[in-house]
Design a protein around this nucleic acid. Structure first.
Lengths: 202, 202
DNA sequence: CGATTCTTTGAAATACGTTACAAAGAACTA
DNA sequence: TAGTTCTTTGTAACGTATTTCAAAGAATCG
């Protein structure tokens, strides 16, 4: 026995570096060099841990997905009433800074998913989870008497997630006609109508 | 005077070839070779007409945008009643085959827009036009007595366009939980509620 | 310290993509 | 047909990214 392995640790660093590099350069401009620089390592070290860059991209996708989703769950769960939960869900779903590597990484990889089953499957996973999250909040709100849904819960949840995705896409893509504030207003407005309730916008 | 120039013609071919190549390979995998092959020309010829590939990408984006938009306008304008128009708008907005180079090209370039002002500006243009298209149809429907909007027209139009964009993104990205049919149902369902009317789904 | 194993690096070899360009080919006119 | 201009191609030169790997460095244990 001799020097202990710390590959898990290093791989984590590299995944973060890859996320940052993807967020900054995009998939089309991504180079091993960029990932190495972000991680403060040489190109050789990147190859040592990830001989196949594709594996690193999959990990980066997974990490972005998990972080984005669990961050929302955590914040939502801190609220008692569903009325507050939905406000938080909206706020976290369309953050002010999609510049954040998480969201940018997610959207870079989404388009890529069309040509890559591993990424497509992660996209599906995120969709399912987010729809479930909204469904849970809505169900709770119904139980608490806050919401009076005008449609099937799943339909409302799917529509809400779709709206989030569209607006985040436009924000990440620098559509000059869309701001995070406008996006959250539209989503809030939709949910207020679909749930027959008032939803504060911020 | 001697052999006449036919550069306009050839450039058109190349734009189409670029659209196809982008749709098939994506931006990250795009190579001069692929565009040349699609166009049935050599790499040298591609460079002859477009010394800067970026110019070709801009043209491809513009062409995809124009085609997608005017195709919708044309089909929508063929209907008399706004009730029919909105059904057509939905059908054309979320086509069964986003495989079509137009839509795929658009979504490939959207993410790219975040890092490129020329593409960002085209994205904004498309957004504005599509919102206006929905607004016009809705206004007409109000005039004809078909629609009784529950919100500001612009809000409804923006929400509808956002829903289209999200679902097209998921379709292009092979999200296994989303089909074109489901997407159109969600959009129809939203509009039916927002406009207090019945909307046929297909 | 010496032995062992893991880690990091930089450089060489390799692979791939783009640019530049000379030469051949094609279309047209006189 | 000869002359002119536009078009196409193939290749050589170049630049850049990835892969491979030997060697040096670091951490641990006995």
């Amino acid at each position: 026995m001799a020097r202990p392995k710390e590959q898990t640790e290093r791989r984590k660093d590299l995944v973060q570096a890859a996320m940052d590099a993807i967020a900054v350069r995009g998939l089309s401009g991504l180079r091993l060099k960029d990932i190495a620089k972000e991680a403060g390592l040489s190109i050789g070290s990147v190859s040592y841990y990830y001989p196949e860059i594709e594996d690193l991209l999959v990990e980066a996708h997974r990490e972005a997905l998990e972080r984005f989703y669990w961050n929302r769950v955590e914040h939502v769960d801190q609220c008692e009433s569903a009325a507050e939960q939905i406000v938080v869900a909206i706020q976290e779903g369309i953050p002010d800074e999609p510049v954040t590597s998480d969201v940018r990484t997610l959207y870079e990889l989404h388009t890529y998913a069309g040509r890559n089953p591993a990424h497509a499957s992660m996209m599906t996973t995120l969709w399912d989870r987010e729809v479930s999250l909204y469904e849970r909040v809505i169900e709770r709100g119904v139980g608490q008497g806050h919401f009076k849904p005008t449609h099937d819960l799943r339909v409302i949840a799917e529509t809400a997630v779709a709206l989030e995705d569209a607006f985040n896409l436009h924000l990440v893509s620098s559509n000059g006609a869309v701001t995070a504030k406008l996006a959250r207003e539209r989503l809030s407005s939709y949910l207020a109508t679909a749930l027959s309730c008032m939803i504060a916008t911020q």
